[in-house]
Simulated assay, not measured.
Amino acid sequence: MKKIVLFLCISLITSCNSQGKRALVGETEYQQKENARFKDASKSPLKKKDLKKFKGLDFFPVDSAFVVTAKLTRTKNAPVFEMATTTDRKPLYKEYGTLNFTIKGKDLKLTIYQSQDDTRDEKYKNYLFLPFTDDTSGNESYGGGRYMDVMTTDISEENTVILNFNNTYNPYCAYNDRYSCPLTPRKNHLNIEIKAGVKAFEKH
């Protein structure tokens, strides 16, 4: 009898824990990882009052129309420049190249950048930085734009790369003004609604 009671208790605890996790699952592995990271107080950019009420980030529905193949044209002899941020901080970046792609029949172009700090960091040396705004910015999505990470290792020999706008994220400034975030250059505005990826965050 004791074994049965113990089994039932364990089952109930497991069930409760799994229900708690399900609330943060999300539609994709990417969304699951983002929600888990934001829930973790040691990693989350959220303010304490927002973290207490956090149940998960709000995402647009996953849409394969926003997974595209882009053609990369590398920028030769690109100068290092100071990128404007939300504070006085001026991190050093370099234009890595331009990306040409099509979404829903519309030809689009974005400039992709490489952080000069990242090139000296073994963990991030293969990361490229792709900030953009679109016609949802300031409404359904964060007004300052969204970011996408692209890896140099994902660029093919033909200089093509897959861009998955479902996996875009907000700068930390969207959640907490104590962070310093790069501002999206004006030329990286897309004249289309990118209804994919993370939405604007409602602060409490």
Score class of each variant (00 low, 15 high):
F38E: 05
K33P: 00
T133P: 01
K53T: 09
V68F: 11
N100S: 14
K123V: 09
D149N: 10
K109G: 09
T119H: 02
L12N: 15
G97C: 06
Y96C: 02
P171S: 05
L46G: 07
N176F: 00
G97R: 10
C181I: 01
K2Y: 11
K199F: 00
R186Y: 05
L46D: 07
R146I: 00
C173L: 03
M1Q: 15
I155N: 10
Y172I: 00
T75G: 08
N17V: 11
A174M: 03
N167W: 03
T136W: 04
N100R: 14
H189C: 03
Y113W: 11
A200W: 02
K2C: 13
D134T: 06
T69A: 13
K104I: 04
D117S: 12
T86M: 10
E157W: 00
K199P: 05
Y147V: 03
D50I: 01
D50F: 01
A78V: 01
S18D: 14
Y169P: 04
R120T: 08
L163A: 01
F132K: 12
N77E: 14
R146W: 02
K94Q: 13
A36T: 06
R22W: 05
Q19G: 13
T87W: 06
G97P: 08
L99T: 02
R146S: 03
S180D: 09
K33A: 08
H189M: 07
F201R: 06
G56I: 06
T87Y: 07
T14M: 14
L46E: 08
K76F: 00
H189P: 04
L12A: 15
L99S: 04
G143A: 08
T111A: 09
F60Q: 05
I4S: 15
E202Y: 02
E27P: 03
D149F: 02
E140N: 11
P185M: 04
Y93H: 09
